[in-house]
Design a protein around this nucleic acid. Structure first.
Lengths: 412, 412
DNA sequence: CTTCATTTTGTGGAAATCCACAAAACTAAT
DNA sequence: ATTAGTTTTGTGGATTTCCACAAAATGAAG
């Protein structure tokens, strides 16, 4: 073969041209992605037989389910650990036909991928060698792209911090910046904070970034790092049930971080979901509030991520303050505490769990491992001793809050 | 009859002597009470046949049920409006035998009563005339007693105000004063405030004082007047269910004020129930808080009198403050409001009532006059639209509070 | 007026809750 | 050890709640 020596020597104006060149040589459709599976370039080809490729080109990124599937089959980990081309068998569930992939390296790091589809023909051993060379040749082109992106990235970072700290408040100004920096906008957004056990290294940052770039559950607008916090401005896809989407996203983020990069112990939260950009700072603060409350009341807030779901914990700080001033006392609680102390009973815990289970006798009994009748006896006792009407929400709530506050104070 | 001219001319050392003198003349047991039915004096008489008299002497005041009964039969109103002696038939339910009573007057005001029991004999017309004279003669003696009491009263008032405003805080000092002024002490106490529609005139003050002196539901320690507020330090009788007793007292106080003196529209409250005197100021402030909340949230707090029962309204001021700073928003509420607005539905009201009825579907449906299934449909809708879990107390409470706050803000 | 989506009401049966009563277990004293 | 008081568990049955499904009513938009 004539081209064997240096088939990619010439200078290419664009990566598109480069993709076409590979495609020519190998006689198959070529797709080039960056490290986050965003489409960088693809060869012109009249071939609609591979749905995965089509979808990738249309949305300018690899569909999430395809990525997930490639992770599960071990394809991506393999590509990330070797410079050799890798043949991938058809994965029909996600519309992926037979293909060969090779990673593009810069020093010790993968900065992109080249995909060659084996639609018409199966690649030979020589072809794979050629693909490997193509990957090497692509390096500089892809790098340039990164450089440009990085420059932009710096300005974006600065802008994001201004938003988070409330240094830009005029909605118009914010919008202009969004447009200027070509950040997509969305009707609804919220600020997410992921707090890691340790400071976030650039490695981890890349991994997080990878997951964010490849997720499609949520639209990522901006993100930055603050010591051990990864801060993210993101938008739910639908406006109907945004909360649910945000929660799902958080759950799947944690799963992926754990499964793919073995990083656990991430405290996640998000603030209020708002429509206008002035509220970015607020949403950020709220996300931090959630984290702070998760720290103070870990058990109660374990399954809470959104500021909305924080419920009454939203103003617990305020109440703690008031309690410290001695202005919040509850004689019902005092009596119950005294009784518990004296008789070694568990009235307070009982009430707490009862409240947490929405006043459902059966569930509470199960949670406490006691007979339902035992529970109802205790409740009767609580009502008597504390002189509290257990059908009066008002009093129940008050008692509950006071119990929580007392517990917190006792442990601090 | 020889004594007819001036049977009570001589000087009597004490009212006891005076009572014995009347008893001698009329040949029947005599009891003298002040305007509040406290025992002032009684004739020595070996007669246990009249339980009402015996009880009065033992406890140094007329039993409350006797007073109630006398009011119901119209006896006391009659005595308060006429200087003539009045014959009262046996009221066996309260152990009251046949007797004659006459009121003691000073100017236009009744300052006491003389009771003559017709145990051995029925009094003649002449006897009644004599009794009337006795009442006139008793006036000065009784007045002296009042004067003495009034002097003490002034010092007591000053002391009470010091307590209410926190100008005496040392428990020892407070106790000394209690002892010195011969105010009874009690293991538990609370400050009550009765707020009248207008400033309290001395007439009304007397009427209130009358009711307080005659009540036995609660032990009155101190009271004073502040414009339209009647402020009372009182102690529940039992330590087991003090709250219940305080509530009963308030209810019966209102009833009596209305039935006996035709004064309605009294806003009543009481603060926390405490054991040590340092908390008098606090209890007073709490009672005022209750009144203020009753003003702000009349419907919700209509049946609330004690600070304990205020429940979450205890810190509504704090939350209102926070809300004003724009730090409390609730997107669930916002969505529900928007929906209600657009579709002319009642989701918010529905939720509110549902919460107030302890999440009981049937009761709520009755209260709203809708079919239970309608309610459950609406609840499902609320959960969807507001993205709120109706089995999560936390979220429910938060929404409820936000609704209340929003309502309050909207109406102010 | 019609149409479509939403809301309200009705029905029935499985599941659960509630309550009274009683026996058993446990505890803290004498 | 006995006893009295409190707490826990068990049983059974009347009542209520919950849910799915369907029919009817309402109401806004074309």
């Amino acid at each position: 073969m004539k081209y064997q020596d240096d088939p990619f020597k010439g200078n290419f104006d664009s990566l598109e041209e480069f993709a076409d060149r590979i495609s020519d040589l190998l006689q198959c459709p070529i797709t080039i992605e960056d490290a986050n599976h965003r489409l960088i370039a693809y060869s012109a080809h009249d071939d609609y037989t591979d749905p995965a490729r089509t979808a990738t080109i249309i949305s300018r990124r690899v569909p999430e389910k395809v990525i997930n599937s490639l992770w599960k089959k071990g394809v991506i980990p393999a590509l990330l650990s070797s410079q050799e081309p890798l043949r991938i068998e058809t994965i029909s569930e996600v519309g992926l036909g037979n293909r060969v992939a090779v990673s593009i390296w810069k020093n010790q790091e993968v900065i992109g991928f080249i995909w060659a589809l084996e639609t018409d023909r199966t690649l030979s051993k020589d072809d794979l060698e050629l693909l490997k060379k193509a990957a090497k040749a692509a390096k500089n082109k892809v790098l340039q792209l990164y450089m440009r992106r990085n420059k932009r990235e710096e300005r974006v970072q600065e802008f994001f911090w201004k938003l988070l700290t409330g240094h830009i408040t005029a909605n118009e100004e914010i919008k202009e910046n969004f447009d200027f920096l070509q950040i997509p906008t969305a009707p609804l957004f919220s600020v997410f904070v992921f707090r890691f056990a340790n400071d976030i290294t650039s490695d981890i940052e890349k991994q997080i970034s990878y997951i964010l770039q490849t997720t499609q559950q949520i639209q990522v607008l901006l993100y930055t790092v603050d010591r051990s916090d990864f801060i993210l401005l993101a938008a739910p896809k639908s406006t109907r049930q945004p909360l649910a989407e945000c929660n799902q996203f958080i759950a799947s983020f944690a799963t992926k971080m754990k499964e793919r990069f073995h990083i656990a112990n991430i405290q996640s939260s998000f603030g209020g979901i708002y429509e206008t950009f002035e509220y970015i700072e607020k949403s950020y603060k709220e996300a931090l509030t959630v984290l702070s409350m998760k720290e103070k009341f870990p058990a109660q807030t374990a399954s809470i991520y959104g500021y909305q779901q924080l419920g009454i914990y939203q103003f617990f700080d305020l109440l703690l303050e008031k309690k410290r001033q001695g202005e919040l006392t509850n004689s019902a609680l005092a009596k119950l505490q005294a009784y518990d102390e004296k008789h070694h009973t568990n009235l307070i815990e009982t009430f707490e769990v009862f409240f947490d289970h929405d006043s459902n006798v059966n569930e509470t009994a199960k949670a406490l491992n006691i007979h339902p009748n035992t529970l109802s006896y205790r409740l009767k006792r609580i009502a008597e001793i504390g002189e509290i009407d257990l059908h009066d929400m008002n009093q129940k709530v008050k008692l509950y809050i006071d119990i929580k506050l007392a517990k917190y104070e006792a442990s601090h």
